[in-house]
Amino acid sequence: MKKVISLVLVMCLIALFALTGCSSKNAETPKENSQQPSKEESKVEFPTKPITVIVSYAAGGGTDTGARILMPYVEKELGVEMVIANKPGGGGWVGWTELLNAKPDGYTIGYINSPNIFSGYLNPAYKRDATIEDFALIANHVVDYGAIAVRADDKRFETIDDLIEYAKNHEVTTTSTGVGSDDHIASLKLNDKLGTKFVAVHGKGAAYGKSGVLGGHIDAYFANVGEVTVPAKNGEVRVLAVMAPERSKFLPDVPTLEEKGYGKVYSWSARGLAAPKGVPEDRLNIIIDAFEKAINNSEQVEKMNKMGLDVKFMKGEEYYKFLKDDEAGIIGVKDLLGW
C-alpha cells in the first residue's frame, strides 16, 4: 500500500517537473481557477482553513523533523491541513517574533524551544522585551534530558565521580552548541553547585562537539539523551550520567546525577507548541484537545522514540510551571553568564 501511494506521488512529481519545464518555455495561458474557500462561518466552527505551524529552525533539523512526524496526527484530529513554515534565524527568535506578531485567531501557531527561548531574552545584549508570558501555551511535545558522556576509550573517566573529582582540580573542556544553550547552562550549574572547572568550547552545530569528543580534542560530551543513545550503542561513547529526575528509558543503566548525590541538577531541551496571546479561549481549547490526542497517539510516540526522543505531553499549569522552572534555572546562573 505504502509503495503504491509513494509511486503515485513520484509520478505526480515527474509530471509536475515536466510541466514546469515546459511552461517556462512555452508559457501557455493557464486558466486559474483558484477559488477561495467561502468566507468565515460562525465562530464555533473552528478550524475551517489550514493552520500554519511556524518552526523556528531550518527544514531537516530536529525540531522540524519532530514537527513533520506529529502534524499528520494533528491533521487527523482537526480535519484541516497543518502547514509547516520554517522561519530560521536569530537562535529561533525570528520565528518566535513572527509568531507573536501573527493574528491571534488560532490559525498561526508555532514550536517553542526551551531553554533557547529564554536565553534569547534573558541576555540583555539582545534588547528584547517579549517574554514567555506573551505566548498562549498549547502543549509540550518532547523533552530531551541532558547527558554527560566521554569517549569510550577515555581511561581517565570510568564513572561520573571520576569526572567530577578531576574537574574540581583541573580544567575540563566540554562541548556546547552556544552561549546559553542547555549544554552550556548544565556545565555552569555544575560549576556553581560543585565547584568544578568545566570550560565550554562553543561550536556551531552539534557535529562540531561530537567530532571533537570522538577525536579526543574535547574532554566531556555535554549533550542530550537523544544524541548519545546511538553513539553509546555503537560503542563510541560512554554515558556517565543523565541530568534528569529519573533514569532514561533509553539508557536504563546510566545513573542520574541526583542518585549519585550531586543534588537536583537537571537539564533538558524541550519543545512544545504555543500561539500568540489573545487567541479566543474556545479555539485554543480545540487546538489543545487535538494536540493532546495526537501527542499521546501510540503510533506517534513510537515514531518519536525510534528517533531517540522522549514524548512528554503537558498542558496548562503543568506546562507553564515546567517552563518557568527552566527560566528560573537560567536566571540562577545569570552571573556566571555575565548577563
Binding site: L16, L19, T20, S23, S24, K25, N26, A27, E28, T29, P30
Partner: peptide
Amino acid sequence: LTLLGVDLFIYL
C-alpha cells in the same frame, strides 16, 4: 507570455 510563464513556474 513571459510574465505568465514565470509566475506559473514559480507558483508550481
